[in-house]
């Protein structure tokens, strides 16, 4: 019988959808979760649940030591594609000496998978011999309800590194993945106040505002829920308008599947025009206010 090891936190338990898809029995390690999470794993058909108390932070080395005895004989290991999830996946796969596939999008056979590759600019099929670690977006394979009564035990994994502080990040309620229309801003904007231009345009269109990595991560002009790209959110709106965004492959990876792409850029040779249906070569500071006014009139707003 195939036994699949699943590592998840209470907020990433949906990775069990992949365990269901693979079939077999699931041994679920829930990191810093309680009875409620164990119960939810039971609803998704967990065979056994191990609640691992990681303390202040989930240190991969401590976690591995706490569960190592359970890992031999597992055919697949499943991890969520969060930052901590990927780190734990790498450490555990490294200790076990098994290959690991990151960003798995489909199961072709129990030993054959398709995944993103080349920084999400390619699609790859990979075949493996023996056990494998699979890292997936938590919501990629939605789990069905198939209630079980798993045995639940508890373990402790005290970190060997020390957490001495933490700061919460600002977070909005935006779900950019669900937006129908997106007006996205990049380094072509010179000052934070200037983003107002894009926000007003977005309002006229009824669009959400997206951004490139530097706007969210470096400059912090917008919160990270606006961030589109390889390391940000993947979007597929009806229209994606990239304003002052150069079109580096890591940005393109997040908006490739948009239906219509519009780009506004002063540089005629900017790569973004290769990925656009309609490209406007113009200074955004001149163009966006005019476009906004014309649209306001045309749409009767």
């Amino acid at each position: 019988m195939r036994v699949i090891g699943v590592f998840a936190t209470p907020s990433t338990l949906e990775v069990m959808g992949l365990a269901q898809k693979l079939g077999g029995d699931a041994l679920v390690f829930i990191l810093n979760g309680g009875d409620e999470a164990a119960e939810r794993a039971g609803r998704y058909g967990a065979g056994r649940v191990v609640l691992v108390d990681c303390g202040a932070m989930c240190d991969p080395a401590a976690l591995y030591d706490a569960v190592a005895g359970e890992l031999s004989g597992l055919t697949h290991l499943v991890f969520p594609a969060t930052k901590d999830g990927k780190t734990i996946a790498g450490y555990v796969a490294g200790k076990l000496g098994v290959p690991n596939l990151v960003d798995v999008v489909d199961v072709l056979a129990p030993n054959k998978f398709s995944k993103y590759s080349m920084g999400s600019r390619g699609a790859e099929e990979v075949e493996v011999d023996g056990p494998v670690a699979l890292v997936v977006q938590p919501k990629r394979f939605q789990p069905a309800e198939k209630p079980s009564k798993p045995a639940v035990e508890r373990r402790r994994a005290a970190p060997i590194v020390e957490l001495t502080g933490r700061e919460e990040k600002a977070k909005g309620s935006l779900k950019i993945e669900d937006a129908e229309l997106i007006v996205s801003v990049g380094r072509g904007f010179k000052k934070q106040e200037d983003l107002k231009l894009a926000m007003e345009l977005a309002e006229v269109l009824g669009a959400q505002v997206g951004c490139s990595r530097p706007i969210a991560a470096d400059l912090k002009w917008l919160s990270e829920d606006h961030w589109v790209g390889l390391s940000g959110h993947k979007v597929r709106p009806k229209m994606y308008m990239a304003i002052g965004i150069s079109g580096q492959p890591q940005h393109i990876a997040g908006m490739l599947e948009s239906r219509i792409v519009v780009a506004v850029n002063t540089d005629k040779n900017a790569p973004i025009f290769q990925y656009a249906d309609y490209g406007v070569v113009e200074d955004l500071y001149k163009f966006i206010p005019v476009l906004k006014e014309k649209l306001r009139k045309a749409l009767g707003k």
Partner: peptide, 13 residues
């Protein structure tokens, strides 16, 4: 090109 964030954790392991 790999975008896996796996190699350094594997080395630590």
């Amino acid at each position: 090109d790999g975008y896996s964030s796996q190699v350094p954790a594997r080395i630590a392991a």
